[in-house]
Amino acid sequence: MLVRGRAWKLGDNVSTDHIISGKYKFKAIHSLEEMLPYLLAEVRPGFYREVRPGDVIVAGRNFGCGSSREHAPRLIKLAGVGAVIARSFARIFYRNSINIGLPVVEVRELPGITADGDLIEVDLEGGVVRNLTKGFEEAFRGYPREILEIVREGGIIEYVRRHGDLPWGGGTG
């Protein structure tokens, strides 16, 4: 699975409140489409309009901290973002992203050397991310096989629809 697009650079501790604020979420709680204009509204105004399919968010530490609201990764995916790269992720955001088939990748160095608009490539199977603009490449610890399958199939719901169960089988892990 290869994702390639322009970088959108964000900082540390971007919370799910920054991604979709509770006050907007509850205004449009019945519809993800109606929430979309508020995506990252107080961090990167206009993001939802300017982002192009395959673009990549490149962030610092603890991306997606705070609320469990899955609307955050869903809106990022709905806007067309192909992957999120960060120094680290908050755990609920991380698992939500996997569950909906949004690739999330933890690397130490690349966020530091990446600027807005750099061309980024994520190779999930190969376990490597590249900043093509800067000629920089960094390996990351690949997903366990089952997680990779979930992401590749577009999320855990799609996986279960196709296979009838979770990839780990019957409850014994």
Binding site: S68, E70, P73, I92, R95, N96, I157
Partner: peptide
């Protein structure tokens, strides 16, 4: 532990 809506659905 806290999870998302898809986890909840599953």
């Amino acid at each position: 532990t806290g999870v998302g809506s898809t986890d909840t659905a599953i």
